[in-house]
Amino acid sequence: LFPQHAHAWTNAAFEAKTVPDALKAYGGGAPTESKDVTLTAPDIAENGAVVPMGVATTLANVKHLLVMVEKNPFPLVAKFDVSESVDPNFLTRAKMGQSSDVYAVAITRDGKALYAKKEVKVTLGGCGG
């Protein structure tokens, strides 16, 4: 389906239709909530097409950090590899078609999936005081 790259794009993760299926593709087990993972996202999206999202962790043995939007057709938005050379803290902007829970997930080297989540509201807008 896609041309070959030096870094093979993980089809199984990006084409997964649910959060757990996408996690499996990176070797993550059943997800557990963790206060050592942080998600930065607005409460209400200013524009559903451009929603700022940040993922960070204070955990030591993390392999990947993921940003996911549960109700998107394909929940996985981005995967960042954690290395010695960068802070485990990444920001991007995602698309959202509707209000949804958003996840920041850390996949550890021993196959754990630890997450933080919050609801981001996508509204039709209008009105005001």
Partner: peptide
């Protein structure tokens, strides 16, 4: 119905950070 529900949530969401501070349409 979608419009009314959307505006109503902007007014009556129990978490104030999800409110927009206007009244119901």
């Amino acid at each position: 119905k979608t419009v009314l529900e959307d505006v109503c949530d902007n007014l009556f969401n129990p978490d104030p950070y999800y409110q927009q501070g206007g009244d119901m349409v």
